[in-house]
Computed example of a mutant assay.
Amino acid sequence: MNAVIIEDEYLAASELERLLGEVAPDVAILAKLDSVSESVKWLRKNKVDVIFMDIHLGDGQSFDIFEQVEITVPVIFITAYDEYALKAFKYQGIDYILKPFDKDELMNALSKLDSLSATNAPFPAASLTVYQERFLVTVGTKMKSVAIGDVAYFMADGKYLVLFTRDGQNFILDQTISGIESKLNPTRFFKINRKFIISYDAIKEMVKYSNSRIKIILSPLPPSGIEAIVSSERIQEFKQWLNQ
Results as ranks from 00 to 15, higher is better:
residue 103 K to F: 09
residue 121 A to M: 09
residue 136 L to S: 08
residue 77 F to Y: 15
residue 63 F to D: 04
residue 143 M to F: 02
residue 147 A to K: 11
residue 190 F to D: 04
residue 96 Y to Q: 02
residue 61 Q to V: 12
residue 113 L to P: 02
residue 168 G to V: 05
residue 154 F to K: 02
residue 64 D to Y: 02
residue 189 F to L: 10
residue 197 I to P: 07
residue 166 R to Y: 03
residue 202 A to V: 06
residue 240 Q to G: 12
residue 50 V to W: 07
residue 60 G to V: 04
residue 6 I to Y: 03
residue 14 S to H: 15
residue 220 P to C: 08
residue 237 E to P: 09
residue 184 L to Q: 07
residue 72 T to K: 14
residue 176 T to D: 06
residue 80 A to T: 11
residue 197 I to M: 14
residue 60 G to N: 05
residue 99 K to M: 14
residue 49 D to R: 08
residue 126 A to P: 04
residue 212 S to D: 08
residue 2 N to Y: 02
residue 155 M to A: 13
residue 131 Y to F: 13
residue 47 K to Y: 10
residue 180 I to S: 00
residue 84 Y to A: 00
residue 229 I to F: 06
residue 99 K to T: 09
residue 20 L to Q: 05
residue 116 L to P: 09
residue 216 I to H: 10
residue 169 Q to Y: 12
residue 61 Q to I: 12
residue 201 D to K: 09
residue 2 N to H: 14
residue 156 A to Y: 07
residue 144 K to V: 01
residue 100 P to W: 11
residue 30 L to W: 02
residue 162 V to L: 11
residue 70 E to N: 05
residue 6 I to Q: 01
residue 184 L to N: 07
residue 209 Y to E: 14
residue 87 K to A: 10
residue 42 W to I: 10
residue 168 G to I: 06
residue 10 Y to M: 05
residue 39 S to P: 09
residue 233 E to K: 14
residue 150 D to R: 05
residue 230 V to C: 02
residue 149 G to Q: 07
residue 8 D to A: 10
residue 131 Y to K: 10
residue 139 V to P: 04
residue 227 E to T: 13
residue 57 L to Q: 08
residue 171 F to T: 05
residue 95 D to P: 01
residue 222 P to H: 10
residue 217 I to F: 12
residue 79 T to N: 00
residue 17 E to I: 05
residue 187 T to P: 02
residue 233 E to R: 13
residue 209 Y to R: 12
residue 172 I to D: 07
residue 11 L to W: 03
residue 193 N to L: 11
residue 52 F to Y: 05
residue 207 V to C: 12
residue 22 E to L: 15
residue 188 R to C: 11
residue 105 E to P: 10
residue 120 N to G: 15
residue 66 F to V: 03
residue 48 V to F: 11
residue 156 A to F: 08
residue 239 K to H: 12
residue 100 P to M: 13
residue 228 A to Q: 06
residue 13 A to E: 01
residue 194 R to Y: 14
residue 183 K to P: 00
residue 201 D to T: 13
residue 166 R to Q: 12
residue 43 L to W: 04
residue 195 K to H: 13
residue 144 K to C: 07
residue 18 R to G: 07
residue 217 I to M: 06
residue 124 P to M: 02
residue 238 F to K: 02
residue 31 A to W: 00
residue 91 Y to D: 09
residue 32 K to V: 09
residue 168 G to Y: 03
residue 51 I to P: 04
residue 164 F to V: 09
residue 155 M to K: 11
residue 235 I to R: 08
residue 232 S to N: 00
residue 84 Y to D: 08
residue 14 S to F: 14
residue 192 I to K: 01
residue 129 T to F: 10
residue 64 D to L: 08
residue 26 D to S: 04
residue 81 Y to T: 00
residue 40 V to C: 00
residue 68 Q to N: 06
residue 165 T to Y: 11
